[in-house]
């Protein structure tokens, strides 16, 4: 088990390194950092000057090595745009996004799992069709649109919740619902099919032969098996909440990493964008790792030879 985890960690790290390198290359080729600092219509000499001072004329590999070395030491570089260390920027904004991600994942779980389970337990019933209807319409509704509608209804019309900002926990309710809702269809469908498969299985028949029915049958025999595949998807969805925070945070004026990313991109702030993409990638990889470990913990077939 320990060896398995170590192997997965090593693999995850390798993926993260490759990802960071690729984003570094892309960012440095797609945009010219010197121009980004100097501004669109700067004189060529000024740009050249900046290129020399910042060392942008050196080979990209050397610069990547420098950057990576910095990251390892905890030095994330300086933001050209905000004129602050990137590390400071990230530390300021990360807790907000983390809270948003966790809250929206909870929204997903609270809606998608029960819906999926109930739908699977009553296949082709009105309930099942309703759940499926919700899933389909939720998938068709764009995130920003749902966000705007919720703001108009809950914040403007009924004044139940604040419109925007991140001052109190109440501010996170609407954005979490919006962000969380986007994962509901995928997770619900997976829960439903997983549960349907399990309920058809021979071991459920065995449990029924032992007299288990209803909630006890589901809880004691079906749930763990049905949720094994869902766990992996939830982990991926949590990762997706981080990148998904770009739009949601902008709509709700939340000062998190997503909004930071958008502003930095608009300001061509390469060091910040680079770190943020790297961070999002790390979160993604870490979530997958977590899912693997959880799966191994819950499924003995993966655990022992």
């Amino acid at each position: 088990m320990l060896k398995y985890i170590l192997q997965r960690v090593a693999l995850a790290l390798a993926v993260a390194v490759v990802l960071s390198f690729v984003t570094f290359l892309l960012l440095n080729f797609a945009t010219d950092p010197a121009y980004a600092i100097a501004g669109e219509d700067a004189e060529p000499e000024v740009v050249e000057q900046i290129r020399k001072t910042y060392g942008f004329d050196r080979p990209v590999l050397v610069r990547y090595a420098e950057w990576a070395g910095g990251v390892l030491r905890g030095d994330f570089g300086e933001s050209y745009y905000w004129n602050k260390p990137v590390a400071e920027l990230v530390a300021d904004r990360a807790p907000v996004t983390l809270l948003l991600a966790v809250m929206s994942l909870s929204v997903t779980v609270v809606i998608a799992l029960p819906l999926g389970i109930v739908a699977a337990l009553n296949p082709n019933s009105a309930l099942d069709r309703m759940a499926l209807g919700i899933a389909v319409s939720a998938q068709a509704v764009p995130n920003f649109w749902l966000g705007l509608i919720m703001i108009i209804l809950f914040a403007v019309q009924w004044r139940l919740l604040p419109v925007s900002g991140d001052a109190t926990l109440m501010h996170f309710v609407l954005p979490s619902i919006v962000l969380g809702a986007s994962s509901v269809p995928a997770v619900m469908r997976l829960t439903r099919t997983g549960m349907l498969d399990v309920m058809e299985s021979d071991y459920i028949r065995t449990a029924r032969a032992k007299g288990f029915r209803g909630a006890a049958l589901v809880r004691r025999h079906a749930l763990r098996n049905a949720l094994l595949p869902v766990i992996s998807v939830l982990a991926v969805q949590l990762g997706a909440k981080f990148s998904g925070s770009v739009i949601t945070e902008t709509i709700f004026a939340i000062n998190g990493l997503g909004r930071l990313a958008l502003e930095s991109i608009l300001g061509s702030d390469i060091p910040t964008v680079q770190i943020l993409i790297f961070l999002f990638a790390i979160v993604f990889v870490a979530m997958n790792l977590l899912a693997d470990i959880l799966n191994a913990a819950l499924d003995p077939r993966l655990r022992i030879a």
Partner: peptide, 18 residues
């Protein structure tokens, strides 16, 4: 399971794997 019990054909899949 108490007064009437059953044994099924498929031993490989009739037990809960987890």
């Amino acid at each position: 399971g108490q007064r009437i019990g059953m044994i099924f054909q498929e031993p490989m899949t009739s037990l809960n794997p987890v």
